[in-house]
Each structure stands twice: as structure tokens, then as C-alpha cells.
């Protein structure tokens, strides 16, 4: 199941675990990323908490946790090479995997067509 937030994150949800990243639209708007700070595995976040930080040449931006849950894995490749988020935001540029506290809460997020409408 692929879902989106109005904060420009995507979630690919399988068996109650969401792989989370930022959308192509967000990556394009941010411009060339030069630094990514990820949470620690094991950290828990509520929906809307700042869970990661991305920095472009010009500015820092928060990446908000899209749902309540626990971080079970992070992607160290984007810390080593932040440009991966620009080149493949919805693939190799994923941020973290979040074990959802309540998987049914994902139903309230945007589906792909609703997200496309949002950024149109």
C-alpha cells in the first residue's frame, strides 16, 4: 500500500511496517541536499514529530513522522550521500522503516491520486 502525507512524505506499507521517504516533489523543491540526520533505530515518534532533518545548501527542513510508531531501520546510504535523496527520492533515497502503532491509521492518509492533486 502506497500512501502520502500533505507534508510531502511517502509511505510504502507492508505487514504493519512503513518505509518512509520524501516525495519527488519535495526533493525537487528542497534542491540539492547536503546533509541528512536520521533517527536512531528503536526511537518512537508520534505523528507530526520531527523525526529527521534534511539540509540543502540554503536551508534546513524537518521531516515529520507520518504516523505513530517505532523506528526499526534507517537508511545509512543517504547519510553518506545525501544526493541520493535528490536522484531517487522514492526508491534508494528512503529514510527509515517505521513499525506502525496502529496500521489502520494509514487509511486516513492520502492515496497517490489525492497527493498528485495536492501538488498540481
Amino acid at each position: 500500500m502506497l500512501k502520502f502525507t500533505d507534508e510531502h512524505e511517502w509511505l510504502k506499507i507492508e505487514d504493519g511496517v512503513a518505509t518512509v521517504g520524501i516525495t519527488s516533489h519535495a526533493a525537487e523543491q528542497l534542491g540539492d541536499l547536503v546533509f541528512v540526520e536520521l533517527p536512531e533505530a528503536g526511537a518512537t515518534f508520534a505523528k507530526g514529530d520531527s523525526s529527521a532533518t534534511v539540509e540543502s545548501v540554503k536551508a534546513a527542513s524537518d521531516v515529520y513522522c507520518p504516523l505513530d510508531g517505532e523506528i526499526v531501520e534507517v537508511n545509512p546510504a543517504i547519510v553518506d550521500d545525501p544526493s541520493l535523496v535528490n536522484s531517487d527520492p522514492q526508491g534508494a533515497g528512503w529514510f527509515f522503516k517505521l513499525k506502525l502503532s496502529d496500521p489502520s491509521a494509514a487509511n486516513a492518509l492520502l492515496d497517490e491520486s489525492a497527493y498528485k492533486e495536492l501538488i498540481a
Binding site: 534542491g31 540539492d32 547536503v34 540543502s56 545548501v57 540554503k58
Partner: peptide, 12 residues
């Protein structure tokens, strides 16, 4: 203009 399609990094 804050940037052109090349982006800040390439422009710099």
C-alpha cells in the same frame, strides 16, 4: 531568481 534548473550546487 534563487536558482535555475541546474541547481545551487552546479551553479556554484
Amino acid at each position: 531568481p534563487v536558482q535555475y534548473p541546474a541547481g545551487v550546487m552546479k551553479e556554484h
